[in-house]
Write a protein that binds this DNA or RNA. Structure first.
Lengths: 340, 340
DNA sequence: GACCGAATTGTTAACGCTAACAAGCGGTAA
DNA sequence: TTACCGCTTGTTAGCGTTAACAATTCGGTC
């Protein structure tokens, strides 16, 4: 900066003013300085800037297992939104969301002076650990539920599950079975809750819940159990004709298991998933599912975080993003519903 | 730090020495200072540290379209490796790899004083743009090929394609058809090259190449064309009995198109993919594919980058990571190969 | 022509840390 | 005893920027 000042024949402070778009700089000086900056390829040192302003303009992102479609898309959405708002993001990826791992990640980010953290923590244990930790800066959770008083953004998982379930009931199924995700995951619990609520509201019987771990393999195993139930439950109130699987990957496994058992989808058993991964449209058959708007989730979480950082609010607001139902062949109508 | 020094009754420099593990500090002082640090919850300011040492210990990651399985896993691998080596990573995700977008991302990172950049640039245009840009710090490419003299790491795409093709030929197919990825992608080109080389080496005829854009939909469209070819090419040298699809997502589309056309996999047409996405094992039928070791790629790229940063080398070495063939039902043997 | 206020520019002192050197303090060898 | 060494600790001066204030310039007014 001193170099630029010398070449342009002004003080370094004037250069600083030009760079910060300060109003009180004459057009002539501004032009001259700008030209010298260009010519010398000068760029200001963010570390020094951070030191002087006590602002780093950096946000941290903590996420678990970012190779899955959901987390990967969420993180991408968050990063994009942060960049649009002029912040650098630094992502730390954890393999497991233990309290120590989370604490370490936070130290790591805090050491770099991040002004806020977006934590993508869909597991109950992770949110609890997060709430227990005393953060060195504002923290916003994504998919962290709203039970603890941390500000956050989530997709309305429960509504999504309800939409799917009601869609299946409306298609003529007496009830809907459910393959849930792992018990510790908030997303999993909310989806199960939405499914159950929808069944109760409709006066349908609530069949026992099967569980998977989000992986296609676990879906496959659940599917094999379902195939067995198909025979034994026939004609009863909980007769197996429709299944809501808690994510698309498991649904793929379920579809394979049903197919191997000689059952047809959707004729014998209708199947629906959740997430709308890019592959879902090409499953055998194309899968009815719920789409999440990851860009919105990213924008909202960054907006919320900046509200806290810039002191516009200190409440722990919880924003909810609406899901979208995508109907495909895997849940084609069984009988004409009333009124059509 | 001044506070810590005052409470511990030493100079701030001694505190600094304790934090930097300087050898010449007495055990007693060290213990006292450590305790005060703990007690006050002090953490040193990285911006000031960066300013004084002229080192930021931050690496940048530039990637395109990180919601796909490949890039997402690569970025995760790179970040993990960087963290293990004590560096903070800052990821910038681009939607498209235009020269301007790349330049902007670099400016963004350079402004934060990153000491090196890992660029995940599988498109030819992106690498070319990268090579044209004068970087403010060492840059290592991942999947950027080795045509331009940038140091980099890649999976041996061409070898993977060769392994797949040879596996199919060994399974009794006279030749192997190919659905390629978009022409500008190096991965796509290397896979096509490996396939073609394997066919030529085996003296098999080289059928015309079909193209997709990595998406399941494009695979589906290619699959429809293939189904048409199945009838017309029957009995000829280029008879369609096996297809190598350049990635698993497209392979899913191909499988669906073939199924809809009444063709059976692998009895009528064997299909193989590339990437080994988690879903591949549950495709109808389970897909033969190539697995990439993303953790190795991450480790190698960070290792290479640090070699450059820390001045251990300035050659543009290009490391290659070996692929792994995963054989599944989609390519079950057609006839017993010689010798079994 | 002196004086005022606004606009523009310059000067100085932080920001929190590390590097380089200086100082103190025992112990050892001449 | 004196000189010198090694270990430990303290002092000072930056690193490159911005904030706060001081100084200068300029156009207009009385």
């Amino acid at each position: 900066m001193t170099d630029v000042a010398r070449v342009a024949g002004v003080s370094h402070q004037t250069v600083s003013r030009v760079l910060s778009d300060h109003p009180n700089v004459s057009a002539k000086t501004r032009a001259a300085v700008t030209q010298v900056i260009e010519q010398l390829g000068y760029r200001r040192n963010s570390a020094a800037r951070a030191l002087a302003t006590r602002r780093t303009h950096t946000l941290g992102v903590i996420a678990v297992n970012t190779t899955l479609h959901g987390p990967a898309s969420t993180v991408a959405g968050v990063q994009e939104a942060a960049r649009d708002r002029g912040y650098l993001t630094s992502a730390v990826t954890l393999r497991t969301a233990t309290q120590t791992a989370l604490a370490e990640a936070m130290q790591h980010l805090a050491g770099w002076g991040v002004e806020g953290i977006v934590a993508v923590t869909p597991q109950r244990a992770a949110v609890r650990a997060l709430a227990a930790l005393e953060a060195p800066c504002p923290v916003v959770t994504v998919e962290g539920g709203h039970t603890l008083d941390l500000p956050g953004v989530s997709l309305d998982q429960s509504l999504g599950a309800r939409m799917i379930t009601e869609h299946l009931l409306a298609s003529g199924h007496a009830t809907v079975w459910h393959v849930a995700g792992p018990p510790d995951w908030l997303e999993s619990e909310a989806r199960t809750q939405g499914w159950e609520d929808a069944l109760r509201d409709a006066g349908a019987e609530v069949p026992p819940v099967l569980r998977g771990d989000w992986s296609p393999l676990s879906g496959y195993q659940a599917g094999q159990q379902l195939a067995g139930r198909f025979r034994t439950s026939r004609g009863r109130g909980t007769g197996l004709t429709a299944v809501f699987v808690a994510n698309d990957q498991m649904a793929l496994g379920v579809l394979r298991a049903l197919r191997e058992a000689g059952l047809h989808t959707p004729e014998d058993v209708a199947v629906a998933g959740f997430d709308d991964i890019p592959e879902a449209e090409f499953f055998p058959p194309p899968l009815t599912t719920i789409r999440q708007d990851f860009a919105s989730i990213g924008r909202d979480s960054i907006g919320l975080l900046l509200d806290h950082i810039e002191g516009r609010t200190d409440e722990s607001t919880h924003l909810v993003v609406a899901p979208e139902l995508i109907v495909r062949a895997s849940t084609a109508r069984r009988i004409a519903p009333p009124g059509t």
